[in-house]
Each structure stands twice: as structure tokens, then as C-alpha cells.
Simulated scan of single mutants.
Amino acid sequence: MARDPRPEPRFVLLEHRRDGIHWDLMLERDGVLKTWALDAPPSPGAEATARPLPDHRAAYLDYEGPISGGRGSVRRVDGGVYVPIEWADDRVRVRLEGRQLVGELRLTKRPRAASNDPDPEPGVWKISLGKVD
């Protein structure tokens, strides 16, 4: 079977400093970077909250430094390619092949809460990284 000539999509994990620190996980898809803000970098066996952000430009795959408009600065923590396993409106599963992040990454959107639900963050995503091979 012939290998698909298209390059594998890339990902990057950036440490974003602006009024504190968070991490931006960016997955290349359809010419943009689908992006989630994380309170902590992904680690095997740990689940964390991931807040969706607007799509970013592909330039962030290789960028480190200050962000225009006083929006802080970013430092590249890891990057590489990924293999898409599943991509739907409410869940994303990919296999990361980075220098540090290797394994299955799962993002799952929590359903919107009912109006009487005390959940303070309806519609956020959960992120987990499977065991490293």
C-alpha cells in the first residue's frame, strides 16, 4: 500500500505567560491551529481542564517570543507530528509523536450544563494523555 504523500499534521505545546502561566495546545488542522488553553501541561495518567480558544495561525508552530498587543510571551515546550484517530465536534483523539509528549491524547467536551446545574464551567473540555509506550 502506498504511503499518503501529505505530511503528517503538526502540534505544538506553548507555555504562555500573561498575567500568570497557562499552556496552549495547538493541533494543525485545515490550515489553522485548533487551540486549547490548559492550566497544566499534559502528563500521562492525569486529566485536566482544557478551554477552547479561537483558531491560531500556523506561524505559532515554530514561534517563540513576545506576542503583539501586550498579550504576553510564549515559549515552546514541545512539538512534533500527530496521527489523527478521531475528530468530532465533542471529542478529539490523536497520537502525539513529540520529543516529550508521546502517546494518545484525548480531548472530550463536557456537555453544556442545564440552567440549574452548579457547574461553573459548562462546555469546557477535559484532556488526558494515555500511557507512554
Rank of each mutant, 00 (worst) to 15 (best):
H16D: 08
W87G: 01
D119F: 08
V102L: 08
P111F: 12
D78P: 13
P52Y: 00
P111H: 04
N116R: 04
L38A: 03
L38M: 11
D89F: 03
S115H: 06
K34S: 04
I67A: 00
Y82D: 02
M1R: 09
A88Q: 11
V94F: 02
D62L: 05
L96S: 00
G79R: 13
R29S: 12
G130S: 07
A2N: 10
Q100V: 13
K126F: 10
V124F: 08
R17S: 12
Y60T: 03
D19P: 02
K109I: 04
E28V: 08
S115L: 10
R91L: 01
L38F: 07
L27F: 11
A40C: 03
H56P: 06
P7C: 01
S115M: 06
I21A: 09
G65I: 09
D89G: 07
K131M: 13
R10C: 15
D24E: 14
L61D: 13
P54I: 04
G98F: 13
G72K: 04
Y63N: 02
E47M: 03
V83P: 00
A58H: 00
K131T: 14
V94C: 02
R3I: 10
R106Q: 11
P41M: 07
G45C: 10
R76L: 15
A46D: 05
Y82I: 06
D90F: 00
P5T: 02
E8Y: 13
L129T: 03
D117P: 09
R17P: 07
A113S: 12
G98T: 11
V92A: 00
R95W: 02
K126E: 09
P120M: 14
P118Y: 05
P44K: 07
G70H: 01
S43H: 04
P5A: 03
W125D: 08
G130Q: 07
